[in-house]
């Protein structure tokens, strides 16, 4: 790990994190930090524990040992509403009631900031309008989610997370069910949001997309982080063999310059 010496500013980190399902340990003694204002992509083969890690970071999964630290405090000991004001989450299995419109969905993002004494305000309205604009959904605000394309729907969900106005944004495979064009739409939206200083941590299945859209990769295998750092620095044929058990040749994308995999074959 090349970043071992410099300790980057990171509001979210893990300390000796141990995550398990029943008797099965998924992640053990993980010490990881997610640099502020960067897009971090967690990559690795199926079953490597990347979604479990994200669930742990999002306090969906209580650790067996160790802790996830948000601003230095154990995320599981912080009031969940307070966490929701700092960390927004887009899970993989999103579901919305039939007929719910885009703007209705996005309004939910304001919930962590509302309470008995602070109901719906003008500020909330402006923030929802802003989220609609960022996700380029103004024209579709009153459309129902089930009448839209997968990419539009996913942008609406991300807009909800944006309306939450948190410094951190967690996304679990935000493009998993989308075709190429819609994937691009969603990743570009995520990049736009990162430009405003939001720290993004996402699980990404497709390594090429991760290399292109992330500043920082966390490569996981069998519950361990085997490499972490900027994609062009850490991605090597050896790492890919270790991760996926395949041989490949690395090329630079002629347009973006980011690594792409060619000639993939079984090791």
């Amino acid at each position: 790990m090349s970043e071992e010496h410099a300790v980057p500013a990171a509001r979210l980190r893990t300390r000796g994190l141990h995550l398990a399902y029943g008797d099965a340990s998924i992640i053990e003694d993980m010490n990881l930090c997610f640099p502020d204002a960067q897009v971090t992509a967690i990559v690795g083969p199926n079953g490597c524990g990347k979604s479990t890690l994200l669930a742990g970071l999002a306090r969906l999964h209580a650790p067996r040992g160790g802790a996830v630290l948000l601003d230095g405090k154990d995320i599981h000991r912080l009031p969940t509403r307070e966490v929701a004001r700092r960390v927004a989450l887009l899970p993989q299995d999103t579901q919305a009631p039939e007929g719910m419109t885009v703007s209705e969905l996005i309004r939910f993002g304001r919930q962590p900031h509302q309470g008995w004494l602070r109901q719906w305000s003008d500020e909330d309205r402006d923030i929802v309008a802003h989220a609609l604009a960022v996700a380029d959904l103004q024209q579709l605000a009153q459309r129902s989610l089930d009448s839209m394309s997968g990419g539009q729907r996913q942008r609406a969900w991300i807009a909800m997370a944006i309306a939450q106005q948190t410094p951190l944004l967690l996304l679990d495979e935000p493009t998993s069910a989308l075709d190429l064009g819609h994937q691009l739409e969603v990743f570009e939206l995520i990049r736009r949001q990162a430009h405003t200083g939001t720290t993004v941590i996402m699980v990404v299945h497709d390594l090429a997309s991760a290399c292109r859209f992330a500043d920082n990769l966390v490569a996981m295998h069998a519950g361990r982080v085997i490499a972490q750092g900027p994609p062009d620095r850490i991605i090597t044929p050896e790492l890919i063999r270790e991760l996926y058990g395949v041989e490949c040749t690395l090329l630079a994308d002629p347009v973006t310059g980011t690594p792409i995999l060619a000639g993939v074959r079984r090791a």
Partner: peptide, 20 residues
């Protein structure tokens, strides 16, 4: 009631929004 409305978005989303 507010939390119950959020539960319609799925359990994980509801937790993400700060509900229990």
């Amino acid at each position: 009631i507010r939390s119950l409305a959020a539960l319609a978005l799925g359990e994980r989303t509801a937790v993400g929004l700060g509900h229990r």
